[in-house]
Nucleic acid binder design. Structure first.
Lengths: 212, 212, 212, 212
DNA sequence: AATGAATGAGCCTTCATTCAT
DNA sequence: TATGAATGAAGGCTCATTCAT
């Protein structure tokens, strides 16, 4: 497959992302993709054999882009900012994913992996992604503790808790009309666990920047 | 529609539940239901016009059964047990739903409501269910505080947090192979927020009964 | 079949007429009739085996009613009125049938008989009806000639011509949005053939009563 | 859609004409067309979405062919023939349409337009066709008058009358077994209105050529 | 590589018709 | 007589997939 083909494949994946974001995974047909790509019916089959393959490609691309962003993050910001700022950045990112309705693959991912998890024993990228995020969060908290910004007996537990809660809000956003203020309230609660003054309701460790 | 018809309708709903549990919502066709019910193609249409209607009926039945269970719970147990025991019971129930793979409507519900939430402004039973559970949890915590069993500055925040985390684990169970010990660990973390000694890792307010 | 059954049959035929008038013949299903009659599916089959049978019954009833009307006409009016008045009455009746959109069986009849004429060599009531009307018309014209009201070389030719034109306007009314004034103009033209002064455009043999 | 597709479309339209001619409009299903065309179910849908669309295409083709014929008529014959000959030609054509049972769309057209006229306020090609024919007829008569061949006080009235009568005979042919001699008789009556000697029964303006 | 016509399987839906009650 | 649940055939429509060009 030459240079040109690679180009075409990217085009397909891009257009497909929009389709999956709009209709979820299961409801998308090869024809939907064909129509969205202004490509011929047969043409699509030169690159992909079914929607699952296409969706996988979308996910892979997604992962790459995230990696790029993270690299970007690491270098420029990680070292020079306070732990609070970094955490705020992290949460901001989660929030963006949640409420950015355009190009949101959320429900499609759930549909895809709920199917995949049944038939397939192999590694699950959704879980990997989750675990990675939880680990990053944990490191951030540990860093904050080291810097004296946070106080926390169980950074690991805290991170998992926050990640599960965020995951819960993700699905709530997709199925229950979660409001932004619901999200903010929940985050506020969780973050209070990081502060010495956490017993006091209303206290927040983030100077002026909350809600993100 | 007489007595007998009602019987038939129940049969359909029952068989349909299994189908939805197996295939989610979107992928289920009228034919799937027909096949599962050993009924004629036209026969099914006497009772339901489309899969959404059937799924709604499944949900309604589900709701009734839950209601029955709750009534059962209220009378016999609510008054005579300790707050800890009740909370344990609540969580046990959540865990059961999560890991009972047979007849688990989880992903079907998410598919159904993620679609419904887009087209429909009206009430969302999934959200109602969530809010109700959160409220029940909150009352339990308040009760525990009154009894001196728990200690918590923000029962509301705590309840929402735990519910979101559980919701997150629900979807994780459906898409990421969440293990039972993952669940237990998370619950343990959350519950520690209820105890005076919560700063100490390893401490648990639940005498011997954990994991549930 | 007892008295009661006869009653029921009449009910069915009545409701069915409305259905055929609304949807033509071919498009009507047994279910349409069932729905219109508030009768059970099986019940209808006790009286009729298919829509053709029902339509035939509608036509028969129709014929009876017309006969009643004609009898009515004969006795009271035929003898004491002028030929012009009688002719006017006749045309008025035709016009009524044409523009009375409610309960107009026109297109249904055409659909029914265009099918029947192919498969069936037997007598055709539509033709009988047409021929009868033409004959009545012819007698009227002859009567008018005898009375000195009309002047016509070929009463038979005139009658057939007028009847065909009316038939043509009938189908035009059903398929081409024929207006009432179109009808009146055409009738005016035809009737002028009956008068000595018929060469003069604008002349009409009917004193003040036109259009009917 | 390329050259070849156009070819296929024509084939479909041709075969469909036969089907409509055989079964009318309403009774024809997509499957009927599929069977008649030796094409796949899905294949037909590449060209037409429903029977109405196909029938419209049949009508359009019909119109084109008529146009071709008329052009043919105009140039070669219109100028050099007598008014009587032209009129005879016109009527011959009408007669041909009426008694050519093969590929006669008559009843199908009535079914189609009786439906269309209800739902659709827009232009009605059946009416256009009728009006055009009436106008052509009127011009012919006027031409005949100018040439001294015909005599007629009201060419417009005459034309409409003849057209309505022909329309009436059309539907009579489809539903009442109109015989050719019935048609000839009627035409003879109508044409006698064009002659000075028209009062005399048996007289005919057409030298030897009648019946056409 | 790319096209898009063509096929046929598969699901949807409606009804004519039967039959136990 | 009357009911209406049940069946299965029939027709509608959409797509995944193939293949000649």
């Amino acid at each position: 497959m030459g240079e040109k083909s690679e180009q075409k494949k990217k085009l397909i994946v891009n257009r497909a992302r929009a389709v999956f974001s709009e209709k979820g995974f299961k409801a998308v047909t090869m024809k939907d993709i064909v129509d969205a790509c202004e490509i011929s019916r047969g043409g699509l089959y030169l690159y992909f054999s079914n929607t699952a393959e296409i969706f996988q490609a979308v996910l892979d691309t997604e992962a790459e882009e995230e990696l790029d962003e993270e690299d970007h993050l690491d270098e420029k910001t990680l070292k020079y900012r306070s732990a609070s700022d970094l955490l705020a950045l992290f949460i901001k990112e989660q929030k963006k994913q949640l409420f950015l309705h355009k190009n949101n693959l959320g429900i499609a991912e759930y549909e895809y992996f709920s199917q995949k998890v049944k038939e397939d024993e192999t590694a699950n990228p959704l879980k990997d992604q989750f675990d990675t995020a939880a680990l990053v969060l944990e490191r951030m908290v540990e860093n904050g503790i080291r810097r004296g910004e946070f106080e926390c007996e169980d950074p690991h537990g805290f991170s998992r808790n926050l990640m599960y809660a965020i995951e819960g809000m993700k699905i709530a956003g997709l199925t229950m009309r979660l409001s932004e203020s619901d999200f903010d309230r929940e985050i506020l609660y969780a973050l209070r666990q990081l502060m010495p003054c956490r017993r006091v309701k209303g206290c927040c460790p983030f100077s002026g920047s909350f809600p993100f």
